Amino acid sequence: MAGTRERSYGATARSVFVTGGNRGIGLAVARRFATVGDRVAVTYRGDRPPAGENLLALRCDVTDGQQVDQAFKEAEAAHGPVTVLVANAGGAHDRLLVRMSEEDFTSVIDTNLTGAFRVARRAVRGMLVQGHGRIVLMSSTAALHGAAGQSNYAAAKAGLIGFARSLTHELGPRDITCNVVAPGLTDTDMSRSLTEEQRQHLLSRTPAGRLAHPDEVADAVEFLAGAGYVRGAVIPVDGGAGLGH
């Protein structure tokens, strides 16, 4: 796995901030950065913070701007200005459109899309002062091909792509990159909640024939955190399910 190699694109430990970093993909990403020697802060909401990890765990709900600001203050005090932001916190509330309430829709947008806006806006303050930064937004293949019952989730995740590309125009001259990772079916709590029928249907559309491991998503995030000339890109980590879409 890539996490076992030493970082070759800079010897100085970076200040890394990962939202939703207490489990699943977020935890795999946080561990990856810690493995290569970075100082890593992770946010968590309702679950317990990661135990026994060399990570700074911060309670933060990304739907609350004051909590976001406080989490950044604590991370900055401990690790210095954030150099790498991974906006991974998210959630789903699946329903067919005819059964979806406005709250079902807006709450998913607020967590997945507006939450990313809140943390990116806060992180950029320090990045502008430093004249350097890396932002990685965690989207989904649902953003690229849609999914029945996930119009709210797919819309939020698709919005991250437009957000990243707009920030690329705004921040590119300041050496602040913004890119998107779009995982497919990954071995996380969310995928384990699927029925066997749902799982097999999704796997039948995946050329790799298996779920991704969270570490494989972390591979893409690690690459983007070190890539200075990749900007506004969407990198699918989906076993070929989207075939480039």
Results as ranks from 00 to 15, higher is better:
Ala71Tyr: 00
Asp38Glu: 14
Glu76Asp: 13
Ala34Val: 09
Ala75Glu: 08
Val29Tyr: 00
Leu56Phe: 04
Pro49Phe: 06
Arg39Val: 03
Asp69Arg: 14
Gly65Phe: 01
Thr43Trp: 04
Arg48Cys: 08
Ala77Gln: 13
Tyr44Pro: 02
Val68Thr: 05
Arg32Gly: 13
Ala75Lys: 03
Asp47Glu: 12
Ala30Glu: 01
Asp38Cys: 11
Asp47Cys: 10
Val68Trp: 00
Leu27Cys: 08
Asp47Arg: 13
Leu56Glu: 01
Phe72Glu: 00
Arg48Met: 11
Thr63Asp: 01
Asp69Lys: 12
Arg32His: 15
Arg39Lys: 15
Leu58Arg: 03
Asp38Gly: 10
Val62Gly: 07
Ala41Lys: 02
Val29Gly: 00
Ala57Gly: 14
Gly37Lys: 15
Arg48Thr: 12
Gln70Ile: 07
Asp69Gly: 12
Ala28Thr: 14
Val42Cys: 09
Gly52Arg: 06
Thr43Ile: 12
Arg31Gln: 15
Cys60Met: 15
Ala34Phe: 07
Ala75Ser: 15
Thr63Phe: 03
Leu56Thr: 02
Thr63Ser: 03
Val29Pro: 02
Val62Glu: 06
Asn54Ile: 06
Leu56Arg: 00
Ala51Glu: 14
Leu58Gln: 05
Val42Lys: 03
Arg39Trp: 04
Lys73Tyr: 07
Phe72Val: 02
Gln66Trp: 01
Lys73Cys: 09
Phe72Trp: 02
Ala41Cys: 09
Gly52Tyr: 07
Leu27Ile: 08
Asp38Tyr: 11
Gln70Ser: 15
Gly46Asp: 14
Arg39Ser: 12
Lys73Ile: 10
Ala75Thr: 10
Val42Ile: 15
Leu56Asp: 00
